[in-house]
Design a protein around this nucleic acid. Structure first.
Length: 216
DNA sequence: AAGCGATCCAACCGCTCTTAA
DNA sequence: TTTAAGAGCGGTTGGATCGCT
């Protein structure tokens, strides 16, 4: 992971000088048009690399340093609910990026919980749960906050969430992993045609996250 | 002090989706 | 309708560092 690759762009760790050039450019011109940065600034980095560096490291909104107990707990709970949807999880952990959350999970939390990577029971069940209901990594998300898009009335949904608040707590607690069948039972989803109830699930997931965020 | 395996995490890769021309 | 660029995602890699012998 070093050297100049095809000769046009550099790879590997960023230098302080490269960081400064990128930061200065974004301050003046704003985010976006990442592929033009190399041409404008002379930075020998591809646009994708520039974007990643800004989003994961240089952006003022990125929080550095060790994860707090509260953050750990929130990530664990969200992971139980969502599986490896790091961007969605990160969207609910202020200041943390999907890459940070993913790394932190793989290096600390999975060990802390005694979960073997890629053989994670919780993740597997969540994944199965999601996939069968059409909520996969390509699920349409709200570009503003990462929430799952839905189409029902807010009042109706919030009422439903309030009614299910205890179930949400139970399902997302450390002691009670989310299980496929539990979700069906607790939320009255049909087992016969999983796809027919996908909208319900999406709404549930999104508003569950809101619930968790405001109540944790 | 040196060697070496383990661990951490920044960065890359390959892919899909969105959007604008 | 097509196409290319931009953006975003999750999985993976590998260099730097740590800690043990």
């Amino acid at each position: 992971m070093q050297g100049a690759g095809n000769g046009e762009y550099r790879k590997g760790l960023w230098t302080e000088e490269e960081d400064r050039i990128l930061t200065d450019h974004v301050k003046v011109h704003g985010k976006g048009k990442w592929n033009q940065i190399a041409k404008v600034t002379g930075l020998k980095r591809c646009g994708k690399s520039c974007r990643l560096r800004w989003m994961n490291y240089l952006s003022p909104s990125v929080k550095r340093g060790v994860f707090s107990e509260e953050e750990d707990d929130l990530i664990i709970r969200l992971h139980k609910l969502l599986g490896n949807r790091w961007s969605l999880i990160a969207g609910r952990v202020p200041g943390r990026t999907d890459n940070q959350v993913k790394n932190h999970w793989n290096t600390h939390l999975s060990k802390k919980l005694g979960i073997k990577q890629k053989k994670c029971k919780v993740s597997a069940s969540s994944s199965k749960f999601s996939e069968e209901l059409g909520v996969n990594s390509k699920t349409k998300l709200n570009s503003n906050d990462g929430s799952i898009l839905c189409h029902r009335g807010e009042a109706e949904i919030h009422a439903e969430i309030q009614d299910n608040s205890e179930k949400i707590k139970e399902m997302t607690s450390l002691q009670d992993p989310v299980l496929f069948d539990d979700c069906y039972d607790n939320f009255g989803l049909s087992n016969n045609d999983p796809f027919s109830c996908a909208p319900n699930l999406m709404e549930f997931l999104d508003h569950s996250l809101d619930f968790l965020w405001y109540n944790l």
